[in-house]
Amino acid sequence: MSHTASCGCGQLKARCDGAPDSIVQCHCADCKKRSGSAFGLGAYYQGEAVTITGVSQRYIRKAASGADFIQFFCPNCATTLYWTTERHPSGVGIAAGAFDDLPDTEPVRSVFDNNRCAWLEPLKIPTFRKGRDSEQIR
């Protein structure tokens, strides 16, 4: 089974084979800015399970770990559809909200909870103060 994610105008697409390896909720300031929301939600796949079609532009920033975080967005509608990281080069993160047909987008962990909006109730999943290698809160 495959799932398709697309940008707002439909020009850039990611076909993902199978279920994601994980779905992660991130409260870091950069994910909030990237998503325009209180947190970012990413579905993570191994690179060989993802086929990208369409034209994208990339933006490289330094993650909190100091490693490059490479975001790919549509040059027409500016939707950030997917990203890769220097720290995990074989993986691809897909913006979970860009899927039309991903059946269950409940995250398996929450990261950068030290930056979570106070009004947002924490989920009953493993939660980390910063990245997944940092202190686990619950």
Results as ranks from 00 to 15, higher is better:
Asp113Trp: 03
Glu135Pro: 00
Val55Tyr: 01
Lys13Thr: 07
Ser65Trp: 07
Val24Gln: 03
Gly91Glu: 12
Ile137Gly: 03
Tyr82Pro: 01
Thr105Pro: 01
Glu86Gln: 04
Asp133Asn: 15
Arg15Tyr: 00
Ala95Asn: 14
Trp83Asp: 13
Ala14Gly: 07
Asp30Cys: 07
Leu81Arg: 09
Phe69Met: 13
Ala49Lys: 13
Lys124Met: 11
Ile94Pro: 01
His3Trp: 03
Ala5Gln: 09
Phe69Ser: 12
Ala63Glu: 08
Val111Asp: 02
Cys9Gly: 09
Ser134Cys: 06
Leu120Glu: 14
Tyr82Glu: 12
His3Gly: 10
Glu106His: 13
Phe73Gln: 08
Arg58Lys: 15
Pro75Phe: 06
Tyr59Trp: 15
Ala5Lys: 06
Gly66Ser: 11
Cys31Trp: 03
Ser65Asp: 14
Gln71Val: 09
Tyr82Leu: 14
Thr79Asn: 09
Val50Pro: 02
Arg132Cys: 04
Gly66Pro: 01
Ala38Thr: 03
Tyr45Ile: 12
His3Met: 06
Ala67Gly: 00
Lys130Asp: 13
Thr4Pro: 01
Glu106Cys: 04
Ala64Gln: 06
Ser110Tyr: 00
Ala64Gly: 13
Thr85Ile: 07
Ala14Gln: 06
Ser22Tyr: 10
Gln25Asp: 02
Gly131Asp: 15
Thr127Ala: 14
Ala64Thr: 02
Ala5Cys: 08
Ile125Lys: 05
Ile52Glu: 10
Glu135Ile: 02
Pro89Val: 08
Ala29Thr: 15
Thr4Ile: 15
Glu121Asp: 15
Gln46Gly: 08
Asp21Ile: 04
Pro107Val: 08
Ser2Lys: 10
Asn115Thr: 04
Pro126Phe: 12
Ala98Gln: 01
Glu106Pro: 00
Ile52Asn: 10
Glu106Val: 09
Phe73His: 10
Ser56Met: 10
Arg138Ser: 12
Gly93Glu: 13
Ala98Cys: 15
Cys31Ala: 05
Arg116Trp: 12
Pro107Thr: 07
Ala29Leu: 13
Ala29Met: 13
Ala118Asn: 12
Gln71Phe: 04
Ser134Tyr: 10
